[in-house]
């Protein structure tokens, strides 16, 4: 009886979320991409969440890091916590769909490319490329290779 209840509950939960995820890809309501998220050869632009939009309005520098090995929410948690501790960072968001870390720095502050790479490795992952400024806001065809 107990086993049957667990199996029924789990299967119904899984199927309802599967349907929800497949039918509503306004994904998550609280962020959106501008530009060419899925266009081949074009790197994704900054993911716009509310904290990121606020930090941009305040005049912070946008940075987008393309990441390797980011496949789950634990990855996102690790990166958000690692970068969230830095005083230079006003807002950070890991997007699993585009495999990017979006950062906006505090006004008049920044992190160097090598420091961002070191922090990504501290979180347990690897940096593939890094874009700043307009390239970060709009996406870029020729991201600078971090390796």
């Amino acid at each position: 009886m107990f086993r049957t209840l667990i199996i029924c509950f789990s299967l119904s939960l899984a199927s309802s979320y599967a349907v929800q995820a497949e039918t509503s890809h306004d994904h998550h309501g609280d962020h959106h991409h501008e530009g060419t998220e899925d266009a081949p050869g074009i790197s994704a632009p900054l993911t716009k969440t509310e904290p990121i939009a606020t930090a941009l309005k305040a005049g912070g520098e946008p940075v987008v890091a393309d990441l390797l090995g980011v496949v789950c929410d634990f990855c996102a948690t690790a990166l958000n916590k690692t970068f969230g501790k830095r005083e230079e960072v006003a807002a950070a968001y890991v997007d699993l769909d585009t495999k990017t870390l979006s950062l906006v720095m505090k006004p008049d502050m920044t992190l160097s490319d090598s420091e961002i790479e070191r922090l990504v490795e501290k979180a347990g992952y690897r940096l593939a490329a890094l874009r700043r400024g307009e390239d970060a806001l709009k996406g870029a065809a020729n991201a600078s290779d971090a390796s």
């Binding site: 599967a18 998550h28 890991v94 769909d97």
Partner: peptide, 14 residues
């Protein structure tokens, strides 16, 4: 995984 969840979604695996 029957679907790909993004950051903060519920991710489900069989």
């Amino acid at each position: 995984a029957p679907y790909e969840g993004d950051t903060g979604d519920l991710h489900t695996w069989l």
